Simulated scan of single mutants.
Amino acid sequence: MLAFTVQAQNAPVPQQAEAGTLGADWTTPPAQAGVQYVTVVPTATINSNNPGTAARIITYSVTFPGPGSYDLYARVRVGTGGANDDSFYYGNGFGNKAATDDTNWITVNQLNSVGYTGANDVVGNAGGGQQQVWKWLNLSTFNGGEAPTAFTVTAGNLTQTFQIGAREDGLDIDKFVFGTTGLYFTVANLDAGAQGSTTPPTVFTPTGPPMATGKPKFLGGVYSTPQKPFFNNYFNQVTPENAGKWGSVESTRNVMNWTELDSAYALARTKGYPFKMHTLIWGSSSHFG
Rank of each mutant, 00 (worst) to 15 (best):
L2V: 10
T5F: 14
V13N: 03
Q16N: 04
Q16A: 05
Q16L: 13
G20D: 03
T21L: 04
T21F: 05
G23T: 13
A24D: 13
T28P: 00
P29E: 02
Q32N: 12
Q36H: 01
Y37R: 01
V38F: 09
T39L: 03
V40L: 12
P42N: 03
A44V: 13
T45K: 02
N47I: 05
N47F: 07
N49T: 12
T53R: 03
A54M: 07
I57A: 01
V62K: 02
G66E: 10
L72V: 04
A74R: 02
R77Y: 02
R77Q: 04
T80C: 10
N84D: 12
F88W: 10
G91C: 05
A98Q: 15
A99M: 07
A99L: 08
Q110C: 10
V114F: 08
V114I: 15
Y116H: 14
A119L: 11
A126G: 08
G129R: 05
V133I: 15
W136T: 05
L137T: 07
N138K: 00
L139T: 03
G144E: 00
G145N: 05
E146R: 14
P148E: 01
V153M: 00
V153W: 03
G156Q: 03
T159G: 02
F162E: 07
D172Q: 15
D172A: 00
D174L: 01
K175S: 14
F176Y: 03
V177H: 12
T180F: 01
T181S: 15
L183R: 15
V187P: 14
V187D: 00
A188S: 15
G193L: 08
Q195M: 03
T198L: 11
T202P: 06
F204E: 12
T205R: 13
T205S: 06
P210N: 14
G214W: 11
K215G: 06
G221F: 08
V222A: 10
Y223F: 14
S224H: 13
F231W: 06
F231H: 09
G244S: 09
K245F: 12
W246F: 11
G247H: 09
E250Y: 08
S251H: 11
S251K: 11
R253N: 13
N254R: 14
M256G: 03
D262L: 12
S263F: 02
Y265C: 05
L267S: 08
P274A: 12
H278M: 07
T279I: 09
G283H: 07
G283W: 00
S286I: 06
